[in-house]
Amino acid sequence: MTTAAPLLDVAGLTIQFPTGTPVIDFGFAVAEGETVAVVGESGSGKSLTALAIMRLLPRSAKIAAGRIRFAGRDLLALPEPEMRRVRGREIAMIFQEPMTSLNPVLTVGRQIAEVLRLHEGLSAEAARTRSIELLDLVRVADPHRRVDDYPHRLSGGMRQRVMIAMAVACRPHLLIADEPTTALDVTIQAQVLDLLDRLRRDLGMALVLITHDLGIVGQWADRVVVMYAGRRAEEAEAGILLDDPLHPYTRGLLAASPRLDTSLHYTAGPLREIPGSIASAIAQPGCPFVPRCPLALPSCRLKPPPLEEVRPGRFVACPVTTAGERADAVAVGR
């Protein structure tokens, strides 16, 4: 559960481009040491939200409304030089493409050392020693030799480990991992996620895990925020969300994921899909999910459904499915 003062608090975030508004009134909070997964399909605005927190949005994007508070500070109001001290030192970010996120002409040791020299003012020699320690920390085999390798000599998983080493070099309070395992092999995925989870515990970081893969949510996240077309569709503790999804979109996503339960295994029958595409959400006056929703009512097309807290810490933006749920909640409360 969220404590009184979360480490990161995003509220009412609206990101505008000249051509559209990909993130609308989005919000979530992250407590210290917590892992929050932000889940959604491509184009739902997850990465933009992450970039907005880092204040690294492309120039054509504008934060039209909202508030991003981090450790008691308003990040959107910080002057750029101060924001630069936050990036990499207090909030670090890992990008989805380990193949291209490392500089091809610098050795990995040099790239890790650069972060340390900037933020911790280490000497070249101390930074190198520390780089080797960090490579060891992220379980890169033979760090003494690897430190002098160029990125093209490393595999994708290794490169992602190097990216993680750079991200945690200055012991940030918050690590944002934007699809950290999308480009990786399935076996490597689990290793990288385990590594992130171990570092989170060892270094006392909070972790925001941005992903489109609900399969990794249950095992590694404390809380899940489901994002659709730039809005928060549902938010709950990971176990609750997986067992009892309320929003039709979350239900669709879960039904579309292959699982080991025999009833849902792909050999037992075809996987269900969500019809249509997220592009249909553009210019919907009502709920953005209406064109794809099996439960849509005429009233859903009129105005966006409000996000309601059906139980403490459990938010759903769907009046259709929560109508019964709220009655239950009241009944249980009595």
Partner: peptide
């Protein structure tokens, strides 16, 4: 526009550092 430049900005590098250390060698 390369990913490693975005990554460098994400690490809090200033413009001069990105220009001379990250991009120029490329």
């Amino acid at each position: 526009e390369k990913d490693f430049v975005t990554a460098a900005r994400g690490l809090g590098y200033g413009h001069a550092r990105i220009i001379f250390i990250e991009i120029l060698p490329n």
